[in-house]
Amino acid sequence: MDKSSRTSTLIAESAGYTLVHLITLATIIPILGLVGYIIAKGSPAISWQFLTAAPTDGMRAGGIFPAIVGTVYLTIGTAIFSVPLGVAAGIYISEYAADNAATRLIRLAIINLSGIPSVVYGLFGLGLFVIFLNFGTSILSASLTLSIMTLPVIISTSEEAMHSVPNSFRVVSTSLGASRWQTIRKIVLPQALPGIVTGVILGLERAVGETAPILFTGAAFYLPQLPSSPLDATMALPYHIFVISTQVPGMPVEIQYGTVLVLLVFVLGMNLIATLIRTRARAKRVW
């Protein structure tokens, strides 16, 4: 290669690097901008009254308390079903399953579950829980629907967390006369716990923000009072955002942004907690 062509390659390459930098920036900046914008536009609406009062005047005034409570209920309901089941399934795949056709089928099913569109989960929940099992449009139906949607995330992350626990611990524990379950309970699970918790939070984070699966299974447009049993329908933040940004004419923008901000704080707060747990656990890990 002669000198001038090398120089021109160098110039072309530095142009290339610049382009990659720019494109990355163009990906990153809008995200931060988006979050910043919502915080800026939403925070004026936030007040004690906004967080603790029911909506009034056809939702054009007042607060969003029922939606917040509903979202909390749905998150707890989802966790109740999906966490034990998902972690147990993760244990099975990581610690018990042999490498055979049945296990490959399970993996395929998990991949498939994680790819099913959320609105299809909504249809399924409508067909099975609302109609067939007759739970009606209720917190119960919606939570069950969200649980099944969350399951693949929890299973995969639990499995991943347990998989990363060194095999030598299992061998040593077994050689000392521990049964498989004892090894799991005393060694594998405690070591995998931060990873599992992180995965659970990330799974629930997704459930918190979902609208489509609860549209026909448990979400209510407007309810003057809080739900009193799991068989009641409920308001929920994501659906409420959908309602006030598309279905209610003359909606004050401030309330819209305020509601969006509250949901975002929920979701990003969970994200932050998950990240913190993961980072701390990595730093503390002995292996």
Partner: peptide
């Protein structure tokens, strides 16, 4: 029939719990 391996592999527990591990499992 106890076994010691080529690499020391302490379980991720305290020194005490490591020594007591087998008995506790029992």
């Amino acid at each position: 029939i106890g076994m010691v391996f080529s690499r020391p592999v302490p379980l991720p527990l305290s020194i005490y719990e490591n020594v007591a591990y087998g008995l506790i499992m029992e």
